[in-house]
Design a binder for these strands. Structure first.
Lengths: 205, 205, 205, 205
DNA sequence: TATGAATGAGGATTCATTCAT
DNA sequence: CATGAATGAATCCTCATTCAT
């Protein structure tokens, strides 16, 4: 069962750190990195502006840290789902997509920040984050490669399929509303099927 | 053959208008709406900061106008492609996707702006733009509906398939490089197939 | 009979000059000299911004010219009233005040400009205007002196009484509304009596 | 004995607040609200431009606060003078006028700001200030009413007399110079007599 | 840790004025 | 005369960041 906490970052041991990180995700997600001010973040974290600098040395590093947490959570969910899945490529892809959809639905704002605001990081932080993200993507790519190798996924464009799948799932964050037509589970099911179909995998029925 | 002009907006009759709009797309795409300053735009358009305000009353309206042009061009390309395609749903979908990919590849920066910076518009401008965008999306939805009705597209999730396809194609803008592994044509071909596969349409071979 | 034109400056021979001057008085009166822009004036005069400079070399000179017209009209009214009055000081004071009140009521905005915005003139223009204004004030001072000399006005502070009277009358402009409790005539009558009382002149009844 | 401090606002507890308010009164009085820049105010208060915004959220609110202080001081002086005066209307009017003249002479710049720049306030602030000002005016009106009721003030226009008196006294601010012909006390005496005469009160001699 | 005060740089926007037509 | 386009200086205000406490 997936945890569905409203805030992404749990207590970190330092008094206000989690509150600041979550407020940063919220502020950057709502107004964009450049549109949100450190004052906005401070207000969201219910602390003072100057206190932010006791935790993070700059706005940019604050974004980096927030994104690190978001990525770690995403990666953990996906990795766990794959671990718990069967051995065949379709099952593993199915569960990976379902986990990813779950994360996006639980944390759409963080997902938006992770896709839209990465470019405002310092080069080194951006590089580190892209590496993290690539690790997640690699999980999907391995599954695709597995299915392509054993003939289950018959798409002639296996090399790029993972990226196509991930962009579709990530885009959910930009339109998803909790009270929308589709439930969390339906959305996961739907995107799992989209993914397998795109991979030209045999489908039930 | 599609024109591949580096600038999206052609001359509009007013002296500097096109230059300003193109500079705005470039600046907003490169640094984000809030990260780019009106000075950046002015510099890109080779005019003075204050002269921008002889053409557009505010930064936000400038963005709105630029996006209006981008959407119009996209819509025209897609509509033209569909018009020139065969009558069956797969042919039409194929050409629609190819045209969309062509636009994204020709104007990746404008595409990024159109997806990432819309939220900075005034509510009315945003609404107008969403309406425009929905019109383009509706073109795809109609094709999906056609194929679903005649049994060609067998996906059980036809209602949301157009959005999934469009998000994949739009995401190309965030990683495409003209000197990348795939040519423009290959990219179009690839995404056309991804789309038809996702729709569970019969595929060649 | 007093003319009660809504605009102070009548046609001057040059096409748009009067319209510009009246628009300037209106704009400067409503928003203040620094609060009103040349664009505001142009809009009010229904002409283009740049065309203003075909008539007046600068915003400051435009104000100077407008105030010159206002002062001339005021002075003409007061002088005429005094000329038409009887020979005794009370009658002359009474008519002078009534004429002044009439001007203020007919042109409250111009009166406000004349009292509040003079300081924004170039030194030479301001000096010229103060001279003009002193001429009007001198009319009142002469009457006061006449009454003081012949014993009709018994105030011990005759030297400053004219200024006191004029400031009261001028202040009408800041609260007068055409639909107010007092009619134009009642206001004139009232202030005439205030003036004579202040001068310690014998009053009817 | 009246204090004649050159600055109106005394220390308020917050480090620079009084200095900023006094600098604002000086700047707005000298150059007008729109003619004075926040930089001017900062310079006058010997602090940085941006620090002003740690004390007041906008130029307009700064003006509002400065005027609030000025009005409070004026009202306190007038109320105190009336309290210390005799019981009869002429004595009370005399002391009220003398106190008002004293304020105007001590703070001519603040008086000018209070009369000329009120219109640049936000509507709510303007309303609040007008209410404050009306309270001071009401003090005078009550005295007039008292004298009218007991037959001491025989003017037929008692209802508007307070306003006439106040406008005359307020106008002192626009021409008063400390080194002028009349001393502070003479000016007070003179205007007290003008006021009583205007009210058609019996006068000495 | 936590905060209020402080600041220099930079943001969008407006302005009076000029110029080419 | 009349105009639209152009511009440099100045406007109010916000920002990320620092510092003293």
């Amino acid at each position: 069962m997936n945890a569905r906490s409203t805030t992404l970052v749990a207590d970190t041991g330092r008094r206000n750190e989690a509150a600041i990180l979550n407020a940063a995700l919220e502020a950057f997600g709502t107004k964009g990195f450049n549109g949100a001010s450190m004052r906005d973040v401070a207000k969201g974290a219910a602390t003072s502006l100057s206190n932010l600098y006791n935790y993070f040395p700059s706005k940019s590093k604050l974004l980096a840290e927030a994104l690190r947490h978001a990525n770690a959570e995403l990666q953990a969910r996906v990795a766990g789902a794959v671990r718990d899945a069967g051995d065949d490529a379709p099952s593993r892809m199915r569960e990976a997509v379902r986990a990813y959809v779950g994360f996006v639905v639980d944390h759409p704002v963080a997902t938006l920040v992770a896709t839209n605001e990465v470019r405002y990081l310092d080069p080194e932080d951006r590089a580190a984050l892209v590496t993290d993200r690539d690790a997640t993507q690699a999980t999907f790519e391995h599954i695709v490669a597995q299915g392509a190798a054993d003939g289950t996924f018959r798409t002639p464009y296996a090399a790029d399929a993972a990226r196509a799948i991930l962009s579709t799932v990530g885009a959910i964050a930009s339109w998803y509303r909790p009270d929308g037509r589709l439930s969390r589970g339906q959305l996961a099911e739907q995107h799992a099927r989209y993914a397998l179909a795109l991979l030209e995998s045999p489908l039930p029925q």
